[in-house]
Simulated scan of single mutants.
Amino acid sequence: MAVAFSGGADSTALLLDCVRQWPGQVRAIHIHHGLQDAADQFANHCQQLCEQLQVPLVQCKVNAKNEAGQSPEDAARRARYAALSQAVHTHPALQGVKDVAVAQHADDQVETLLLALSRGAGLAGLASMPAKWTRDGLQWHRPLLNVPGAKLREYLLDAQVAWVEDPTNQDEQFTRNRIRAQLLPALERAFPQFRDTFARSASHAAEAQDILNEVAAVDLASVQEYGSPNIKAVQQLSLARQSLVLRHWLKVQHQTTPSAVQMTELLSQIAACTTRGHQLRLKVGRGYVRREGPILEWSAEN
């Protein structure tokens, strides 16, 4: 078992609990983002605490700067997960690791759901963060999704274990921080059980999305020709199922997600493909969908 260890309260509580449950079997990975002056101090703190706990620590430096059109949070998250996966697969100290634990907790899950609602997300977004998932041949776990952040800090105070505070967590230019500072206290006052009820809603959305994924997989198998969607076969489906199967195709085969506006235009263009001469080349996700004879192809943006 490896724990993604930032040095903050959440990951410190997770690391400490894992060490207590599985002594001698836990390793830690610290991702050095290099985005702020305190990054070196965080790394030093992690090293010292891991030495105290007798936990092997692997430190990885990443370039987490965001590209144009990408939020800093998304860039850091993508860089972090890529680095964690690469470290497990390549670092000798992590040989044999098959499971990685990350420290998102109940408040993080609420923030994710509220962000999804604010963006008009569908079921996939409303499902929020899964407790378990598979990626890059590894099993990933979020064992703290039912635990409020305040409880994790109480746990560390009782254990007399220190953590570091990321100063950016107080910066309300970031949407998550505004939710944490302004909305969660109001929800606590109005709906004391909101963490549990929001988690149930996310779970219901995830269950419904699983069913839709199964339907989409069956539809995709039925409309494919040489591994790509056949236009005429797609046209035979209802609009809702056309949208479902095309989103599934783009996500599963090309790891990209269209916006609502892009999907609406793509469906309109597919409906217009009634003659051989109708051309189609449309920006979708991180690339372009184009017509190649009877089928649809997707290529990444150059």
Rank of each mutant, 00 (worst) to 15 (best):
L280I: 12
H278D: 12
Y288L: 05
Q253H: 10
R241D: 09
L184D: 00
V289I: 15
I231V: 14
V62G: 03
E111S: 13
A75S: 15
W22H: 14
E172P: 04
P229C: 00
D219I: 12
Q70P: 09
Q54W: 05
A199C: 13
T112G: 01
V19Q: 01
N146F: 02
A106H: 07
D99H: 06
T275I: 06
Q54H: 07
Q36R: 15
A186P: 03
V3M: 06
P23K: 09
H33F: 02
P23Y: 08
V26I: 15
I179Y: 03
A300N: 08
L138K: 05
A206I: 01
S11E: 03
H30V: 03
Q48M: 07
E214Q: 15
F191N: 10
D74T: 08
A83R: 06
R281F: 00
G34P: 14
G227I: 10
G24H: 08
R78H: 13
K151T: 14
A28L: 04
A13R: 02
L250R: 06
H141L: 03
S11T: 04
L296C: 08
G122E: 05
S222P: 02
L14V: 08
C50Q: 09
G8L: 10
A39Y: 00
H254P: 07
W249F: 14
R291D: 02
F191M: 11
K98E: 15
